[in-house]
Simulated scan of single mutants.
Amino acid sequence: MVKIDQISLPDFPLLLAPMEDVSDPPFRMVCKENGADLMYTEFISSEGLIRDAIKSRRKLDIFDYERPIGIQIFGGDEESLALAAKIVDVTNPDLLDINFGCPVKKVAGKGAGAGVLKDLDLMVRLTDAVVKSTRLPVTVKTRLGWDDQSKNIEEVAERLQDVGIKALSIHGRTRAQMYKGEADWTLIAKVKNNPRIKIPIFGNGDIDSPQKALAYKNKYGVDGIMIGRAAIGYPWIFREIKHFVQTGELMAAPTVEERVNVCRQHLRKSIEWKGPIVGINEMRRHYANYLKGLPGIKDYRNRLVTLKTMEEVEAVLDEVAVNYKDFVMERQAIELVNYHENCPL
């Protein structure tokens, strides 16, 4: 069992990463149903919360079936982050996470997210301000450092633990790398193996298959892993990793019928939460991922991103389920045969 303060998680828990414009309640719902152990909201601007910005406040929506769930905030000002923490406290999540990892210019360029990596003393002060402003357990998500010359994650981990954080998630890239190149987990392992570190350490970056998840678990010894991009349009990644870690066997890939059903479920929740217009429009970014790998799917995808009613979208999804049913069953068989022929004993 892994514990974040009083929150109990299973051995080697799988976390859903907070992703802007992705990790909303509809997406979190399908990930939770497929095995995510701990999830986070999209990151929320501390300044937006204080100004009562509608978009920021809406991101505070959480549901009991999602628990345990954390709300993630970002900002570069101690007073603003502390006040935002008090606002979050009222919404009663299970924990509060601080984003010190977002690399995009509009965040990092304003001294928030990964921008804080350039000033470790500021990072400590910001974290301390949040810890002292909330009754919730506070966790942090960050990167190895600003660039190759400032990979300071080992010092970061010790100092943030000293001011009271209860867990640390580390993306194995610097801010300068953005999402390019291969994530380096060696420094994540050094943090985990530091005898001073007593809090759970979660690794993040490049985990896109059950085989890789187990290999990284064994090689780097982290307490759990956080999955981001690999879950977009493929929430089954969580259940597949769990099954492989427990049994050493790969699960069968989801059938097209299952892909369509989960996509439909995601769509309906999106409309329920956002309304018919925004719900349908924002769902368009997900179709390509749900239907990835199906030959000749481009025409269906092009239709899906132009439709304006739930009934029209569901009619096209029904066509996909019927027309690709046999293909997926064949592909699953090939995948499993290939795996068992090549898997080392």
Score class of each variant (00 low, 15 high):
residue 23 S to D: 02
residue 238 F to Q: 02
residue 211 Q to H: 13
residue 148 D to P: 06
residue 98 I to S: 07
residue 244 F to R: 05
residue 101 G to N: 14
residue 110 K to P: 01
residue 181 G to I: 12
residue 289 N to W: 14
residue 331 R to P: 03
residue 213 A to F: 03
residue 175 R to T: 07
residue 246 Q to P: 04
residue 277 I to T: 15
residue 180 K to G: 10
residue 18 P to E: 01
residue 82 A to R: 01
residue 120 L to P: 00
residue 160 L to M: 10
residue 301 R to E: 09
residue 54 I to E: 14
residue 29 M to C: 04
residue 91 T to P: 02
residue 72 Q to F: 09
residue 77 D to S: 03
residue 202 F to K: 07
residue 68 P to L: 04
residue 303 R to E: 12
residue 215 A to L: 10
residue 334 I to H: 09
residue 108 A to S: 15
residue 143 R to P: 03
residue 345 L to R: 11
residue 50 I to A: 01
residue 323 N to R: 11
residue 211 Q to S: 15
residue 179 Y to P: 01
residue 17 A to T: 07
residue 159 R to L: 07
residue 234 Y to F: 08
residue 318 D to K: 15
residue 222 V to M: 14
residue 126 L to I: 12
residue 295 P to Q: 11
residue 249 E to Q: 09
residue 189 A to H: 11
residue 257 E to W: 07
residue 125 R to N: 03
residue 130 V to A: 00
residue 288 A to D: 00
residue 169 S to A: 15
residue 112 A to K: 01
residue 50 I to N: 00
residue 344 P to H: 04
residue 176 A to G: 09
residue 314 E to Y: 02
residue 295 P to L: 12
residue 13 P to E: 08
residue 227 I to G: 13
residue 108 A to W: 11
residue 53 A to T: 08
residue 133 S to I: 02
residue 174 T to F: 12
residue 209 S to R: 13
residue 291 L to V: 01
residue 163 V to I: 12
residue 247 T to N: 08
residue 43 F to V: 04
residue 12 F to P: 05
residue 148 D to N: 14
residue 58 R to V: 00
residue 126 L to Q: 08
residue 289 N to M: 06
residue 2 V to M: 15
residue 140 V to P: 01
residue 260 V to L: 03
residue 29 M to T: 05
residue 288 A to Q: 12
residue 321 A to H: 10
residue 217 K to T: 12
residue 152 N to T: 15
residue 1 M to T: 08
residue 84 A to C: 07
residue 200 P to R: 08
residue 165 I to R: 00
residue 214 L to M: 13
residue 243 H to I: 02
residue 65 Y to F: 14
residue 49 L to N: 04
residue 205 G to Y: 11
residue 124 V to D: 09
residue 175 R to S: 05
residue 274 K to H: 07
residue 306 T to P: 05
residue 317 L to M: 11
residue 31 C to V: 01
residue 209 S to E: 08
residue 339 Y to W: 14
residue 132 K to G: 04
residue 250 L to F: 03
residue 338 N to W: 02
residue 214 L to D: 13
residue 133 S to L: 05
residue 214 L to G: 04
residue 112 A to S: 13
